[in-house]
Design a protein around this nucleic acid. Structure first.
Length: 859
RNA sequence: GCGGGCGUGGCGGAACUGGUAGACGCAAGGGACUUAAAAUCCCUCGGCCGGAAGGCCAUCCGGGUUCGAGUCCCGGCGCCCGCACCA
């Protein structure tokens, strides 16, 4: 007579526990210097309107860490906020005639409810939103601090202009010559812009990477490459008929004797000056500026140059004059915007020299080559070798020659050792409305005047019109017209707003005291919580957001706001959530629920039965329609099932493929767990039952498994091996399901096992775990129950199974005590029949014993 | 072009510093229960030979180091990612 197990009611149970945690204020964090803090956060979302599976994965990972650390006794801070300025709100305003502020706030409300349905252990009292004056007021104060510290400045600059966004893009936002959001070909324009001096921290940011041991190597490497430090030399070339000298950066000063020309960028001052009196040069420069910087364009673009009338004197060879070109392949933004060309040892210079018939003299020869016969054809020789044709450098290796060339240049006053970075200052001006106003007023007499701190915030007006293209702030009737704070004359506000990466570069510090009205953040709170112990998010921010945040933290330290250099002690980059793609015969994308399995393993359109082409799993994206809505999943399977699925099978740093069979299987396990607790396969001892004096074999082995599982799951969670932690928990609960009988020792160990299982699944499936914990008779909620401890004595194996190999091939196993001496193990192995047969009566040549692992007999 | 990563059953993935390859799960097949289906439960599941015991082969391919290699080294092939006219 089996009793019908009561069904696990997801909706009621999840809502119930969310309410209880809320009432108990379980996740509100308070500074407490007596307790060890743990600050864990995930990258805050852009409020697009609905959460997607990437969010579910991100916040599940963070929540497992937060709840686990909490159970381990840490004082955990786990906050949430909204990266709420940005372009989509403006697009929505233009398309749907809804004000950006309203659209954004409604989206936040909707997404907050969705996130809450996941049962995240977040301190919602610290919620912040970057588009609210309470937040951006302090961003503006930071900008003023940066101005005072000389970390922000204004200059005319060639910028990346996105013609669709009608705005400037940072270099980091240009991908393959296209805008990172719009995909439009980026043009070059000269505009007056605000910049932050991130380059002042090039070396600090580079060196700081070394200490970030809990960051993925890949991200550190990407930042290292992005900063792009190269050592070389500055060389000054005297110019014919001019007073000034041409300053060139090179990493190959050793090849100076092979120089056959100099070249400057189209926007180099020298080129600009010469163009004023040379219309043909002006035309050439205009052409260069039109040239796209896309990958295809660069690959196919020919090296082109315009030979000026100026020549440059070789610093080492008296009387040798090098022609000076304006060339399309020289970048104004890197180095000094000018190069010397050594065609024999640089492929670009070689291509250029061949086209314009310039001299190609090798000055470095391979060590095994005959120097007299060595010549360069179509491929430049860029490896190490021996210097030739180079006067006082002849015979040296490249490294030595570099040093000697620089020393000589320095002694002559014609150059110096120099380090150049790829990293450039961060242009933050955006010709957009929905962003943090830059707190500056432009006065015709006083210039750019900072808004006095007492006048902050500079409110972003919400009564704007999107009827005209461009920035609505610029056509607002009243907003920009203000008196100059210095002289009182009629002046105009800066109508540019900040890049949204400005807002996200310090929000993790604001979380420490999100309601501080008069300071950027409270120093004590920031000192307690910072740095973030664990930050979790996508790799797509490996350079942009993470580098800016590291810069901000250093800059804010300089401004006296914070004491740390690095914001994120640990970083984890999660993989993407993927799904198969589907297209109909016309090539149109189909949503997964528009497709069903066809007869022969193929896919067909669920409505029409027409064949559907199944594509490989790719990152879920609206454009390819391969998306699954988390809300629908939580609605039908519950948050716990969705969370468990995010953690099972795929390691968190790899991509995860969403499948129906996967979520169904997870759901079946959730129900199996429920049944295991509600209708266990035998008696469960009372909560406070003492351990029986004698445990039988089954009970004692089950107890070992329980303790082993605690040890394994703990170390798996510590190391972000969540998929393995889930596997260990499944093994434990499978074992508990197989443990049959009502004997006292079995009932007792079953109690221990169920208690332990509930606690171990707590961080992963918090609602179910609470419910099961309560079902087991516990009055204190699991959320306030510490993580289980394991007994090291029980972890130690009673016996070990050692592999017995003959010549490295497995031939059997022997069960031995872990401390069996090697000689005894050897005897046990040699006694095996299989080993005897292979030895064929002869003595073994050698026996290798690796304690607890393997005995290898060499026949 | 430069830099980095990865390659294990039909699939996702385990295998800590070289030591019993394939944990855990998905899919598949067989069976039980059911009028039937779903759910649930039991069994099989890398390949080949064999009735079985067992044997041989097997971690992208080819070499090497080692008593022993998925793991280390050298050389290929393939896939993925980042940067890119950076002087």
């Amino acid at each position: 007579m089996s009793q019908e197990p009561s069904r696990y009611n997801i909706k009621e149970t999840e809502a119930k526990w969310q309410r209880i945690w809320d009432e108990r204020r379980s996740f509100e964090a308070r500074e407490d210097s007596a307790r060890e803090k743990y600050y864990v956060m995930e990258m805050f979302p852009y409020p697009s309107g609905r959460i997607h599976m990437g969010h579910v994965r991100n916040y599940t990972l963070g929540d497992v860490v937060a709840r686990y650390k909490r159970a381990r006794g840490f004082n955990v801070l786990h906050p949430m906020g909204w990266d709420s300025f940005g372009l989509p709100a403006e697009n929505a305003a233009i398309e749907n005639k809804v004000p950006p502020a309203k659209w954004t706030r409604e989206n936040i409300a909707a997404m907050r409810d969705q996130l809450k349905s996941m049962g995240l252990s977040i301190d919602w009292t610290r919620e912040l939103s970057t588009c609210e004056p309470e937040y951006y007021k302090h961003g503006q104060a930071i900008f003023l601090d940066f101005l005072e510290q000389d970390l922000a400045y204004r200059r005319e600059s060639w910028v990346n202009w996105d013609p669709v966004e009608n705005s400037v893009l940072a270099n980091e936002q240009v991908i393959d010559g296209r805008g990172w959001r719009t995909g439009a070909i980026v043009e070059k324009r000269l505009l007056s812009q605000w910049f932050l001096k991130i380059t002042e921290y090039s070396d600090a940011l580079l060196e700081g990477l070394g200490a970030l041991e809990r960051w993925p190597d890949k991200v550190r490497l990407m930042q290292r490459n992005w900063i792009g430090r190269s050592e070389g030399a500055r060389v000054f070339f005297s110019l014919s008929g001019r007073e000034d000298r041409l300053e060139v950066f090179t990493t190959r000063p050793d090849t100076l004797f092979g120089a056959s020309f100099c070249a400057v960028a189209a926007n180099h001052p020298l080129a600009q000056e010469l163009a004023a009196t040379d219309p043909k040069l002006a035309g050439f420069i205009a052409e260069c500026n039109r040239m796209s910087t896309s990958e295809e364009a660069i690959e196919t673009a020919e090296k082109q140059g315009y030979r000026t009338t100026v020549t440059a004197a070789h610093p080492f060879v008296a009387g040798r004059e090098l022609p000076v070109y304006v060339a399309n392949f020289v970048l104004m933004e890197y180095g000094t915007g000018a190069i010397f060309g050594c065609p024999a040892h640089d492929q670009r210079d070689l291509d250029f020299a061949r086209k314009y018939d310039l001299d190609v003299t090798p000055v470095v020869a391979p060590r095994d080559a005959d120097p007299a016969a060595f010549a360069v054809g179509d491929t430049a020789f860029v490896e190490d070798g021996v210097l030739i044709n180079s006067d006082f450098l002849d015979g040296l290796g490249v490294a030595d020659a570099k040093r000697k060339a620089i020393d000589t240049l320095a002694a002559q006053g014609d150059g110096a050792l120099s380090i150049t970075y790829r990293l450039r200052d961060w242009g933050i001006s955006r010709q957009r409305y929905w962003g943090c106003p830059i707190p500056v007023i432009h006065c015709p007499d006083c210039g750019a005047v900072p808004v006095p701190r007492a006048d902050l915030p500079v409110h972003l007006p919400e009564d704007v019109s999107f009827d005209k293209p461009g920035n609505p702030l610029a056509h607002h009737p009243t907003w920009k017209h203000v008196p100059c704070p210095d002289c009182g004359a009629a002046a105009e506000r800066e109508t540019d707003t900040c890049d949204t990466f400005f807002d996200s570069s310090w929000y993790f510090m604001r979380y420490c005291s999100p309601n501080a009205a008069d300071t950027v953040f409270e120093r004590d709170a920031a000192d307690y919580w910072m740095p973030v112990d664990q930050y979790i998010g996508g790799v797509e921010h490996a350079v942009l957001h993470l580098l800016y945040s590291r810069f901000f933290t250093r800059a804010l330290k300089r401004c006296g706001h914070i004491g740390v250099d690095e914001p994120f002690d640990g970083l984890f980059t999660q993989g993407m959530v993927c799904h198969e793609t589907y297209r109909d015969p016309d090539g149109n994308w189909l949503f997964p629920d528009q497709v069903r399995d066809g007869a022969d393993g193929g896919a067909v359109d669920a409505a029409t039965g027409a064949p559907v082409r199944r594509g490989r799993a790719e990152k879920m994206s609206k454009s390819k329609k391969n998306v699954v809505d988390p809300e629908a999943i939580i609605e039908s399977y519950g948050a716990d099932t969705a969370r468990l699925y995010m953690l099972s099978d795929s390691p968190p740093d790899r991509d995860l493929e969403w499948t129906v069979s996967g979520i169904d299987a997870t759901w079946r396990y959730v129900n199996r767990l429920w049944r295991l607790f509600v209708t266990p396969p035998g008696a469960v001892a009372p909560r406070d039952a003492a351990q029986p004096a004698d445990l039988g074999g089954a009970a004692s082995s089950a107890l070992r498994d329980i303790h082993r599982t605690i040890a394994d799951v703990s170390s798996d969670l510590d190391r972000f091996h969540f998929n393995k932690a889930v596997a260990r928990i499944r093994e434990l609960t499978n074992g508990l399901g197989d443990l049959k009988g009502d004997a006292d020792d079995i009932a007792w160990v079953r109690r221990v096992g169920l208690d332990t299982a509930a606690r171990l699944i707590g961080p992963i499936m918090p609602h179910l775990a609470e419910e099961l914990w309560q079902h087991l008779g516990h009055e204190t909620p699991l959320v306030d129950t510490p993580w289980p401890e394991f007994d090291p004595a029980l972890i130690a194996e009673e016996t070990v199974t050692m592999a017995v190999q003959v010549n490295g091939k497995l031939r059997g196993t022997v069960e031995l005590a872990p401390d069996t001496p090697s000689e005894a193990a050897e005897q046990a192995a040699l006694a095996l029949e299989a080993v005897q047969n292979l030895l064929d009566g002869k003595p073994p040549r050698k026996v290798i014993v690796v304690p607890k692992k393997v005995i290898n007999v060499v026949a």
